Simulated assay, not measured.
Amino acid sequence: MFPEIFDTKPLRRSIDDGLNWVVKNWGDEFEAAASPLLWLLNSIEDLLIATPWWLFTIILVGIAWLATRRWQMPVVVLVGLLFLGVMDLWEDAMTTTALMITATLTAIVISIPVGVWMSRAKPVRQTVTPVLDLMQTMPSFVYLIPTVMIFGPGKIPALIATIIYAAPPLVRLTDLGLRSVDPAVMEASRAFGTTPSQRLFGVQIPLSLPTILAGVNQTTMMALAMVVIASMIGAGGLGYQVLQGIGRLEVSRGLFAGLGIVVLAIIFDRITQSFGKQLQARIGLAEART
């Protein structure tokens, strides 16, 4: 046994009491601040569920064709979506997709400005990097405790926990992409008398778009990786089906719902990767696919 150096109970009690005080005095304010996120999530979910399956399939197959210009990926998307429909997982898949899209959009809005800030100020990068390390290594269940205490079980704590878990890769890759722009190109843009804002939006961001899009891809995948855990506090969707399969020992329910999550992951992963390769080819960072 490790010797007890000091009693940690008062420290733990003070942390719990502090969070209880926040919930009691600021709970309503936190719920009001999170209401736009809930509105966005519900709006996207209602839109996806209301969209006829055949229309959603045509749209996603068309996006896959535009991303790859080959027939293989659209066929994979078509087969995957038909699998979700045949296995009676369509509505749950739309709920999961809505959570993933909302978390990804929110992460984009937050992460890209933070990544830009990090790339332009070394002290900010040195401060934010340990925070990102903590966000990525902290067990995701830890995020659920304070969010459930503040908001109660439901979609909002699941969404917030998903955003916290999924945002760091996009912050890192945005910072990396902006700092990796060729210094000669930056020097040439300065010689033309451009302002820092013009260099950022006219040179750095366009040249670093493939890297930023890779960050979006990673954020999307990490958001999907959270769906089972998020279902434990009321997120619903395919993760809830997996959770029910565990609770009822129904192998088929858990297996098919898990395969549904894999289908969504493959679809969104391949589409975003393909768009990233197209951007690389356009700006000369990679050979165009033939």
Rank of each mutant, 00 (worst) to 15 (best):
A121L: 12
L144N: 10
A191P: 04
A191N: 10
V227K: 04
A223C: 07
N217C: 07
V227M: 14
S197F: 12
F192M: 14
D175K: 01
A121T: 09
Q204N: 11
L173H: 09
T147M: 10
S111I: 12
M149W: 14
T127N: 01
L132N: 03
S140W: 00
R125N: 08
S111A: 15
L176D: 06
P196Q: 14
Q204L: 13
A166I: 12
R190A: 14
P206F: 12
M186F: 08
R179D: 06
M226L: 06
I205G: 11
V216C: 08
G177I: 02
P210F: 07
F151T: 07
D182G: 03
G215D: 11
T162Y: 00
I160V: 15
I110K: 07
A107V: 13
R179L: 05
Q126F: 05
P157H: 04
L132D: 03
L178A: 04
F201P: 03
S119A: 15
Y165D: 01
M232S: 11
P139A: 02
A214Y: 10
V228G: 06
P206W: 09
V124H: 01
M138F: 09
V131N: 02
A230Y: 02
V142H: 04
L173P: 04
A230F: 09
L224A: 13
P168Y: 05
V142P: 01
L213D: 02
L144A: 13
L144S: 08
R199H: 05
M149L: 15
P123S: 07
V171A: 10
R125V: 02
M232C: 03
A230Q: 08
P146T: 13
V171Q: 06
V227E: 10
V114M: 14
G202F: 11
D175V: 00
G152R: 02
P183G: 11
